[in-house]
């Protein structure tokens, strides 16, 4: 066992983990932050995307010990300080960017990483950035619309497919 300490959503946390404990398990099972979802558990679906030192990573594909000392951001830290939905979450709601909601935490975290890097992405850039986030309900269209809206751009420009 090893002790790990990190900052998660601005709070200092620590815990004893095995070398093989995944970051996703540490967040969900040790910290009870179950908003981070584990879908495929193979690094493909993106439901487990969190931010580590400001960059999106698949938390099921990273050991918890590798995040020792890191700043970690999860979906639980995305809402505004008063508890209201942030601009991306609000846009997902308004544009029906989710149906079952399982992929949504990863989608929102990826969208946040994209908008930090590229505040006004084109539709093509959004679709390419979401390559590692799989959604089986929406057909992606409303997710793309939501991210366009969250970036302050006109969603009317996106033609229905």
């Amino acid at each position: 066992m090893a002790q790990v300490s990190m900052t998660v959503n601005g709070k200092s946390v620590s815990g004893d983990v095995e070398g093989r404990t995944l970051l996703s398990s540490f967040l969900r099972d040790h910290l009870s932050l179950t908003g981070t979802h584990v879908g495929c558990d193979t690094g493909q679906c993106g439901a487990c995307v969190v931010h580590v030192n400001g960059e999106s990573v698949k938390s099921c594909n990273m050991l918890a010990v590798e995040a020792d000392g890191a700043e970690v951001g999860t979906i639980e830290g995305q809402a505004n300080p008063d508890g209201s939905l942030n601009v991306i979450q609000q846009a997902f709601q308004e544009h029906h960017g989710l149906q079952c909601g399982f992929c949504t935490p990863g989608m929102v975290m990826s969208a946040a990483a994209l908008l930090k890097e590229n505040p006004k992405p084109t539709e093509a850039e959004i679709r390419e950035y979401l390559e590692g986030n799989i959604c089986r309900c929406t057909g992606y269209h409303n997710i793309v619309k939501a991210i366009m809206a969250a970036s302050g751009q006109d969603v009317g420009a996106i033609a229905a497919e």
Binding site: G43, V49, E55, S56, S110, L114, E131, N133
Partner: peptide, 9 residues
């Protein structure tokens, strides 16, 4: 290569 989250690691 891969996707953005994979490229970050």
């Amino acid at each position: 290569i891969g996707d953005p989250a994979v490229r970050n690691r």
